[in-house]
Amino acid sequence: MNLRETLRYLGYRGHKPDEQTLSLIEECWRELEGAAVKKALYREFPLGFLDDGRLDMGCFKTKSQALSKNLADCGHVLLFAATLGIQADNLIRRYTRLKMSKAVVMQAAAAAMLEDYCDEINEELKQAYEKKGLYLRPRFSPGYGDFPLECQPEFLRGLEAGKRMGITLTDSLLMVPSKSVTAVIGVSSQKGDCRVKGCESCPQKECQYRRKAI
């Protein structure tokens, strides 16, 4: 159980939870562990820097300064997707109807669980690539900073994420199951600075959920 991150998503900002909340968090993690059907998928594509400033990711092209910076010395990218499955959504929806306090904790626990799961797969990939003398850049997701969400349909199609892991999009490009992540991971022959990842790379510095440096 990742208590620290769950509390961060609940807006605790370093405060300690009371016992009742703590037991609710434990309960939610237990139920989620039982219900979630975790799946992850990745595929490597050659990376191209086009003259008009766009990035060519193999199955889609996009424009983002933040991402270009992140991928500066990369020759390839890994397109990555992970999900906790529709079962996590089902739990959240169920408690949204029956017990809101549990729904918000479930929501936070699921977010933390998904992030942990992504980290776990990411770490495996990192080690596998390092054996080949290649280095991975931090995960960077559509919607972070100026990386537009509009690439999501092609991104997911490139991974066959619909058929293989059940990730679909709504008309407004939200992913369903909601506890899903897509991300670009740069592959480079140069060692790079990997400290900044996910949350910290977002320009929304005032966000109340922002992770604090330890």
């Binding site: 609940l10 807006g11 939870p17 909340t21 306090s101 918000v104």
Partner: peptide, 8 residues
């Protein structure tokens, strides 16, 4: 006090 407590 935090959100889960408020809701409980």
């Amino acid at each position: 006090l935090f959100l889960p407590q408020l809701l409980m």
